[in-house]
Every structure is written in C-alpha cells, then in structure tokens.
Design a protein around this nucleic acid. Structure first.
Length: 418
RNA sequence: GGGAGAGUGUCCCGAGCGGCAAAGGGGGCGGACUGUAAAUCCGCUGGCUAUGCCUUCGCAGGUUCGAGUCCUGCCUCUCCCA
C-alpha cells in the first residue's frame, strides 16, 4: 500500500476505499496543501438512495472530515439520459417532476453524512440539470464534442458490451459519457472541483472528464474509484428478497436496517466495519479478530454503528434492543414493525391467511401463506401455525396487547388492535 | 424497401411432436443443521370465495373437440442485402 501524506488519502486507503487513483502522488500533495474539492455523481431514478450508494457517500464523509469540500452532484439532467454502464437494457426515462421529487427526498439522506452550506458546513449539493438543460446543441458539439473520438468511445466497456451482445444502444445513451465528462469540467469551473470519485465501473467515465478538462481549460483533474463491494460469498451487496435496502427510514425501517447489517457474512465483518462505520481502526481490528460465534458481537457493533450513522444513535439502540429481545430472549419489543387493525374486526375473528397476506403482507398471497403453513414457516405468538383455517381473535392478544406474526425466524410483525 | 431469425411463467436464463398451469437452471422464500453467518441437504416458487373455477407463452384474429405449439395480420428486436 502506498504511504500517503494527506489525511484524506490515508484514511481512505486504510479503510479499503481505494481501488484506483490517477496520479496518486500529485493528488496526495494537493490534498495535503490545501482544501480539495471533490464530487461524486448520483442518479436520481429512485426516491431514496440505497445501500449501494453508501460506500461513495462515506468517501464524501471522510473528505469533509479531513478538512476538504464535498460536492454531491445530483444527476437531474443525466438521469434523463441514462448511463449504459453495466446494463443491457435501456433505462426508462423519468419525467422531470418525478426527478425533482426524488431529488428532494435524497437530499435528506445526504444531510446525515455531510454538513451543507448554511448548516455549518461547506458541502455543496449540485444538480447537473442546472447546466445541462440549457445547453445549446451546436455550441456543445463544437466546444465539447470535438474533443471526443468516436473510435475511442466505441472501445469503452459500457459501449462495447452492448454492441457485442447485440443490444440496442441509443444515441441518447451513447452521449452519457460525454455529459458526465462535461459535468466534471463544469464543476471544476464553478467550484474548483479537482477530483471525481465513484465506483470502479465509473473509471472510464471519470477519466474522460479528466481528458476533457485538460483539453478545454488546461485543468489538472484527478480520479479515484472505490472497489465494487460484493459479499464474501460473491453476491452483490444489498439485494434482499424485499428488494433494495433503502436508506430512507420510511422505506426500510431502522430495525430492518439494523437487521441487514446484523446478517452480514462472517468474512465481511471487518471490511464492512472499516467501510461503513467511523469507528477507530484499532477497535475494528480487535472486533475483526473474534472467531466463531463470538463474531456475532462484532456484527452487532457493525449493525449499531452503521444504523447510528444513518438513523441516529437512539434509533440504532432501539433497533439493537428490539433485536436482542426478539432473537435472544424470545420475547419482543415495540420497535418491531407494527400493523394496526380495527378492534371490532379482531373480535369478529380474522383468518390466519388474511392476517398474513392481506393485513401484514408477510406472505404475498393467500396461496403463499398456505404454502408457508405447509412448510411450517408461519408462527403466531411464536407457535407454529398448523391449520390454514385458524382464526385469530382477541384471545390471541398477548399481555402486551398485540399479536406477533412471524414468517420464518427473521421476519416479524406485530398486529395491534386500535 | 427485400430476405432470414427471435419474442415463453411480470425476477432472470431457458426447453417445449396440437391435450400444458407448461421441463430444467439461476435467484428468492420456507424447513433441517448452526451462531440471526457460510456451506450442505429437503420443500416451495400463477390467482381465487378451491376435490372446482379463473388468468398466463409479444398483440389481434382464425383453423380445431382442444393452440405456447398450425394459419393470417400487426408490433418489437437482431442479422444479411438495398
């Protein structure tokens, strides 16, 4: 590992954030001497960021922590185009209103990690729609387009893959890399931004921006990419049955978020502690050294620290507490997801199938609930359901005044009469 | 514009002589074993008011007792020629 002299690169390197860096020595000197401004681009195709965005966001966090200036660039303009990288299919194009809606929602997530201007910090949230939407096509072609060689563009993986597999690549998408390169140049001009970071798949796009900056403005720009994070068993990170692990609390509750980290594979714990928490490295080293069942302690720390970063210390503690009661003591606490039902309805009696499929959506349909019963996967108040005609009534309420429904060992919902 | 080929279970890939709720994978879910891990093994993986009914193979028609399968038209994609 290269020894850096700047705090910023040192921390990123020690914690495993660095995959590739352009001109490491020059960047290191730059980060040591003064304030470095760097950006990461985000799509806004969804109303929330997900786990996959967390890693780059942590890089912005450390950037700010080490005295520099982060820019979160929202792709309000490029989202209307769609990055072809790593995808076979054309991305659907969102309406402008939907994009703006998503943008607002995502901004809240950033504010947990970054201190923005007007909030006691220097972080900037930019939107490339600000400059892309008003571009004049002819001017753009003349000023920017002439610096791009189609021969070279065709050699990029993102394009080559599509062509080789004979999938359609529209001209619109073909232009994505040009727009991203232009973003970098524009941010350099506006804010003196000198570094673009991103996932390893972004290397080509970032380097394009560096080249364009040099050709247009003789600017000296840098690239830094993070490794692609897969789990120890090779799966892509953050994919669960329920879909993506979102960062917004209303999409994935702090409890579920905590559980996500708690269920990390053994082999990933040390790496994840370094990447997704801000704990000191010596403490992480101690936790990572735990063997066998003891590593569960490290997983709990990981879950709590990661959740605290995202949802706050209190929510993390509550999620940890609920989890302990649920899994270790066999009881439960209030932070489990709760679904309210009318008391009268409960008194009249609710079929188990209805309770699991309609009320709580633990099962996807009555048929699914039936199948789960046959497989022994459904529990009411921790007792396995054996009969799909079973009725739930007020008599099933526990001392806490709720009914606990479980699918498998990990998914629990409380049914609460109101 | 001409010629050739393709579109299958709303997660993906993919088989499918006219009797098909449709092979086989992957993924996912559940169970067993464990440590809320991994690996392994087993089961499940259209819907419903359920010994039956309804909806599915690009779309719309047709032939047939019966169509994913045959015919016609259309749509989309790929390749070759112009």
């Amino acid at each position: 590992m290269t020894a850096y002299t700047s705090d910023f690169l040192n921390i990123l390197a020690e914690r495993g954030f660095i995959h590739q860096v352009s001109e490491p020595d020059a960047l290191d000197a730059r980060a040591k001497d003064g304030t470095l401004t760097a950006y990461i681009g985000y799509d806004c195709t969804a109303p929330s960021l997900h786990i996959g965005h967390l890693l780059p966001t942590m890089m912005l966090y450390w950037l700010q922590q080490t005295g520099h200036r982060p820019i979160a660039l929202m792709g309000g303009g490029t989202t209307r185009v769609g990055d072809p990288s790593g995808k076979d299919e054309t991305r659907r194009v969102l309406s402008e209103e939907a994009i703006n809606e998503n943008l607002r929602s995502i901004r809240k997530t950033f504010s947990k990690f970054l201190k923005f201007e007007g909030d006691g910090g220097n972080a900037i949230m930019a939107n490339n729609a600000d400059w892309l939407n008003t571009l004049n096509y002819i001017d753009f072609l003349r000023d920017v387009g002439r610096h791009f060689s189609v021969n070279r563009m065709l050699s990029f993986d993102s394009v080559k893959l599509r062509l080789e597999r004979q999938h359609e690549l529209s001209f619109l998408e073909f232009n994505y890399m040009i727009l991203q390169a232009y973003d970098f140049v524009e941010l350099n001009k506006r804010y003196g931004c000198a570094l673009q970071m991103g996932g390893s798949d972004q290397w080509g796009n970032i380097v394009n921006g560096i080249d364009l900056g040099r050709r247009m403005n003789n600017a000296h720009l840098f690239a830094l990419t993070a490794p692609l994070i897969t789990t120890a068993s090779g799966a892509k990170m953050g994919k669960t049955a329920a879909g993506a692990v979102w960062l917004n609390a209303d999409l994935v509750s702090p409890y579920d978020y905590w559980q996500f980290w708690r269920n990390t594979e053994d082999g990933d714990v040390g790496r994840f502690l370094k990447l997704f928490t801000v704990m000191p490295l010596d403490e992480i080293a101690r936790l990572s050294a735990l063997q066998g069942a003891e590593i569960n302690e490290a997983k709990k720390v990981l879950a709590t620290e990661a959740t605290a970063l995202m949802h706050g210390r209190d929510a993390a503690a509550e999620a940890g507490d609920t989890s302990r009661k649920t899994f270790e003591e066999g009881s439960f606490a209030g932070a489990l997801p709760t679904v309210e039902i009318a008391r009268a309805e409960l008194e009249a009696g609710i079929g188990v199938l209805t309770a699991f499929a309609d009320k709580t959506a633990l099962a996807s349909s009555n048929g699914d609930a039936r199948r789960q019963i046959k497989a022994g996967g459904l529990k009411v108040n921790d007792a396995t359901v054996g009969d799909d005609k079973m009725m739930l009534t007020a008599k099933d309420l526990t001392a806490d005044g709720v009914i606990k429904l479980s699918l498998g060992r990990k998914k629990h919902v409380l049914l609460k009469p109101v």
